[in-house]
Amino acid sequence: MVNVERVMVVRRPLAEVVAYLEDFARTEEWDPGTVRCVRLDDGPVRRGARWRNTSRFRGRTTELRYELVVREPTRLVFVGENSTVTARDDLRFAEEGAATRLTYRASLRFKGLARLAAPFLRGEFERLADGVVTRLPEAAEAWRS
């Protein structure tokens, strides 16, 4: 398993940051690995909402189906899966004055033979997480609800 964690401050109120991030389709704006992310169901975002995320990693394109499994006022958890990996994005929010402190945790559990590659991929996932720290606050601060 590969785990990465980053903490960042977004200069917007907590409720606005949660509203921005609860739509996983917006990963196109802040996740450097995401090429495309499309909502698979309709209506307001709620627990059980689903997305198809296409990512590029080490020159290869892969697709995961994500679901919003936890939707709380200060926490969002998305779980994505395909035949080789289960990914979990756990986002926790805390007020920090007029801004929001966001703790972003990504966990990847590889399946089958892909498990053998996990230790060698950690550095690449760390670099992607560094990209999230650069892009996410800027994208959330620019978003207009």
Rank of each mutant, 00 (worst) to 15 (best):
V18K: 01
V2T: 04
D23G: 06
R75D: 09
V17H: 01
P32Q: 01
V79H: 01
G112M: 10
P44H: 11
F110Q: 07
A106K: 01
E16H: 11
T100C: 05
V79G: 04
Y20Q: 05
A117C: 13
E124S: 15
S107G: 13
A142W: 08
L14E: 01
V85T: 10
L128K: 05
R71K: 15
A87Q: 05
P32M: 08
N3M: 15
A142T: 11
K111Y: 09
A19P: 01
T34E: 03
L68G: 02
D41I: 04
A15L: 09
R12A: 02
A118C: 04
Y66A: 04
S107L: 13
E22S: 02
D41V: 04
A139Q: 00
M1C: 08
E67A: 10
E81H: 04
E22M: 08
R71S: 08
N53M: 09
V35K: 01
L116I: 07
L14H: 03
F78D: 00
E28I: 07
R144N: 13
R47E: 03
V18A: 02
F57S: 12
W30H: 05
V9D: 11
W143H: 10
A140Q: 03
R65V: 15
T86I: 09
G43H: 03
V69S: 09
D42W: 10
V77W: 11
G48I: 05
V18I: 12
T34I: 07
M1V: 13
S83P: 09
L102K: 00
Y20D: 05
Y104A: 04
G97D: 01
G97A: 13
R52D: 06
S145H: 14
A118H: 06
M1L: 15
R65H: 15
L121E: 07
V132E: 00
S107Q: 05
T74A: 14
L113W: 00
V79W: 03
D89Q: 14
R105N: 13
V10T: 00
